[in-house]
């Protein structure tokens, strides 16, 4: 019963346009950031009259550019996941969905699995964009791309995993906030404003930083393990960031908790 439901959920995403529209925006955005920052720092580090110490060293710069896929791009899989759920409510599609598969938990599980898959696709597409543009910019200024470093590739792989998990978090958020407009507003407000502000504020004190590293975006950065642009020095000297596997577990736990809450808040209610 699970496999048919999974195939249906994948087909639902593939038969509408939003998944590739969001993917294109993700690519353009990441190319702009990774390529733009790479060119900016490359220019600093090579131009005369500038102290080369001002630019980050390349073993720091390259992974930072490549990691922009999760630092900046994680909002896209979250939106895709949330839209996959909220459009069921908005277009009253829960009726045919539950008529075809009356076991509702099964449908939600299939949706999460499908989104894990699409989040990974976003990860791969985003990585191609961030590595392509970033490494291209570094090469242009004669800097080392770090692409012969196995640690770089491990980090890239963890970036794909991060985006996959974020898509599942989106499913949970969508179930928790079935109103599509409200869900989009909450996601944009949290990822673009609330979380960055909190992370910036918490870096001023050790006790706050020890809490701040549990913020979802911080956990995501910890999972990827790339030096984050606005995370530079986000954790004070006395506070270590989370291990990559701790960050990953935290994101997975967040996805699970949100989805279970969403199941009880909206998913199992009467469809009228």
């Amino acid at each position: 019963m699970f496999l048919p439901a999974l195939r249906a959920e994948v087909a639902k995403i593939l038969t509408t346009r939003i998944w590739w529209v969001l993917a294109i925006i993700l690519v353009v955005y990441i190319v702009f950031i990774s390529g733009g920052l790479g060119a900016l720092f490359g220019f600093f580090s090579t131009s005369e009259g500038q102290a080369t110490e001002q630019a980050p060293p390349t073993e720091f710069l390259a992974p930072m550019l490549y990691g922009s896929v999760s630092t900046f791009g994680y909002v896209f899989p979250v939106l895709l996941g949330a839209l996959a759920v909220t459009s069921e409510y908005r277009h009253q599609m829960l009726t045919p969905t539950f008529l075809a598969t009356p076991k509702r938990g099964l449908v939600l599980g299939a949706k999460s699995t499908a989104l894990l898959f699409f989040g990974a696709i976003y990860g791969v597409v985003g990585v191609i964009a961030s590595v392509g543009a970033g490494a291209g910019a570094l090469t242009l200024f004669g800097l080392d791309t770090q692409l012969d470093n196995s640690e770089t590739w491990a980090m890239i792989g963890r970036g794909v995993l991060a985006l996959a998990l974020w898509a599942v978090i989106g499913v949970g958020l969508g179930a928790l906030i079935p109103n599509q407009v409200a869900a989009i507003v909450v996601i944009l407000a949290f990822t673009q404003f609330v979380e960055p502000t909190l992370r910036a504020v918490t870096m001023f004190a050790d006790w706050a930083a020890s809490l701040g590293r549990f913020l979802p975006g911080a956990a995501s950065d910890a999972l990827v393990g790339a030096p984050s642009l606005f995370g530079v020095g986000a954790t004070g000297p006395g506070v270590d960031p989370l291990e990559w596997w701790q960050g990953g577990l935290l994101l997975a736990a967040l996805a699970l908790v949100l989805t279970v809450l969403g199941y009880f808040v909206s998913w199992k209610r009467d469809v009228t």
Binding site: P4, A8, A11, K12, T15, P96, T97, L99, A100, T101
Partner: peptide, 12 residues
């Protein structure tokens, strides 16, 4: 066609 295809998949 896609609408029916989705639910045909779900219901085998």
């Amino acid at each position: 066609r896609d609408h029916l295809g989705v639910y045909a998949k779900a219901a085998r």
